[in-house]
Each structure stands twice: as C-alpha cells, then as structure tokens.
C-alpha cells in the first residue's frame, strides 16, 4: 500500500480512526474473508470469524507496533481467529482441529453456499489429504497470493520451511489430481 505509514497514522489517531477503519475494511474485507473461508470452510463460520477479526483489529490497533506490514498483521489476526474458532468448535466429540475441519468438509455438499460440482469436491478432498500446516501454506500462497516471507510471518514458521512445504504440497496435489484425472499430463 502506498503511504502505509500515513494510513497507519490515521488509524492510530483518535479523531481520524473511524474513517480510516472504514477504508481498512474496503481494502481487506474480501481478502481476509476468503483467507478465513478456506480454513473454516462454511460461509456462516467465515462470517463469524471475519467479524471477530475486524473487531480484534480495531481493538488492537493502538498496540500495533509496525514490525510487519499492516496486511501481514491483519492476515495473522485472521489466521489466529480462524484457528481459535476451530479450537472452540472442537468440543467433546473431536480430538483435533483437523477433525473439525474434516466435519465441515464432509458437510460441504449440503452447504447452501457451496456450488461446486464433482471436480471441485475432488479438489477439496485432495486438499484435505494434506497435513493441516501444508494445506494452509499452499492455500495462502496459491489462493491468497501471499509472499513466502508474509506466510512465514503469519504462521511463525521459518521461510525456508515454508518454501519446502509449499513445493512438497504442490507435488502431492499434482499427483493426486493426475490420479483423479483432474489434470492431464502434458
């Protein structure tokens, strides 16, 4: 973002904060929604988490130390809020956050805001086979268009490890898609 420090200054200033926050919503609402949606799967879940994310962003703005870019900081909040949501929904029936995600994926067909066909369902199944961290890294890079350095900051994993895990997951997905005839080998 051009003039990010000026914009951050407005967000931190008491009398310009509300106006700047509206602008912040316009800039990041969609990107954060889609980032969250891929983790919590359903629209209802994503809507809840998106609202919590922006509330937390608003509350935490006075503590924003500008050690990372505003974008990375917000993605990190969104990512943590999504994981917190899954953790809260784990309850007594599931042992792990992955199982909760699997439950949402299994119910995807009956979700009123899922319009995918068999091909898209197969892609979801392939992605679900990836270990949790690898899936999130792949999605952040491929769908959210984040840089490796940004993903490293968001997930608190070393950048080198992020790159390794990303290329490993790309290889896995390609193989699975070829096997499922979702891709044709050139």
């Amino acid at each position: 973002m051009k003039n990010e420090s000026e914009f951050i200054g407005k967000l931190l200033s008491a009398n310009q904060r509300d106006e700047a926050f509206k602008k912040l919503l316009d800039l990041y609402q969609k990107r954060l929604y889609w980032h969250i949606r891929k983790i919590v799967i359903t629209h209802e879940n994503a809507d809840d988490v998106l609202q919590n994310t922006f509330l937390r962003v608003y509350k935490s703005l006075p503590n924003f130390q500008q050690k990372s870019t505003l974008s990375t900081w917000m993605f990190r909040i969104a990512y943590n809020e999504s994981l917190r949501f899954l953790e809260q929904n784990k309850n007594k029936y599931y042992d792990s956050v992955e199982e909760v995600q699997q439950k949402y994926l299994n119910n995807l067909v009956s979700d009123s805001y899922f319009e995918g066909d068999e091909v898209q369902l197969k892609l979801h199944r392939v992605l679900a086979q990836l270990p949790e961290k690898e899936r999130q890294i792949f999605q952040m890079k491929y769908y959210d268009d984040l840089k490796f350095r940004e993903i490293a900051e968001i997930t608190e994993i070393a950048e080198g490890t992020i790159k390794t895990l990303y290329y490993k997951s790309v290889g896995f997905i390609e193989k699975q898609m070829l096997d499922a005839e979702l891709l044709v080998k050139n």
Partner: peptide
C-alpha cells in the same frame, strides 16, 4: 476452483 459461494451483497452487509 473451490465452489464457494456467497449471499448477495454480502460484503456490503458485513461491512
């Protein structure tokens, strides 16, 4: 690619 859909005017209402 993922088949995800949204309610109409979702982002405006959400904002």
């Amino acid at each position: 690619e993922l088949g995800f859909d949204l309610p109409e005017d979702y982002f405006l209402k959400s904002k």
